[in-house]
Amino acid sequence: MTSRRPSPAAPETSGPLDPRAIISFHHVDLQYDDQKALSNVTFTVANGEFVCLTGPSGAGKSSILRLIAMDAFPTKGQVIVRGMPATRMNRGRVPQLRREIGYVFQDFRLLEDRSVEDNVAFAQLVVGQPHKLIVKNVMRVLTQVGLYDKRHRLPRQLSGGEQQRVAIARAMVNSPKILLADEPTGNLDPVTAQEIIDLLFRVNDAGTCVMFSTHDHEIVKTFGQRVLVVDGGTLISDERRRVPVDRSASLVDNMYRAPEGARSPGARTVRKEPVHA
């Protein structure tokens, strides 16, 4: 069985100017205060792709994801996300970009003193969604991750897998174009981890570009899409697998349609930004 909506196969020559590229790295170096994290990293990710980022600890996986969210800026080279070049980015516009990027972490990062529902609603509140739509959208994503019944619970009253599903719901509630997940399964047992990966597949099926990092060999082995391997701060392999992956067919179509009232301000501003290499 093949994926209903296979990832587009990007041509080998795709560069930063590829119109389908939603993320492109162009000879990127990243230097922290006393530590070189990345050197000469070049790759592009097309809209709607599903990418697994792997490599040993300290390889630079988190750094790559951080660059995409513009929480770090390249020391050399260029990172372009949705047409916005990092080195020419006005820092005041970073929040706008973040609203189009969902971000999920190994440690979930939920607000411990707020209910599941409030945690998810928080992301909508920040972007200025009116109350009525917040209620609707929160209900929709919580239903999609299967936690609507537990919406009044606090994070500590949930299992690790459930907490990660809340984090994914929060990341998805603003209908981002990109979902970044930094070792989303790192704290989970293999079965729960697979459930989370399945959930990411469903997110990708709805058209969201998903990029996650992991050093779980099992997940990498069975992952049927694109795999990027980093080691010591350089990209050592970029493999496009087209292995059919057996995923549950019970997934409901249309699950991840855009939420009502979803806005994508970046989509408008992107056009104004000159795209350059």
Partner: peptide, 16 residues
């Protein structure tokens, strides 16, 4: 700091 970090994560402006 956690709520600030999460606010930044989901795209809150500094003013907010």
């Amino acid at each position: 700091s956690r709520i600030i970090q999460i606010q930044k994560l989901v795209g809150a402006t500094n003013a907010f």
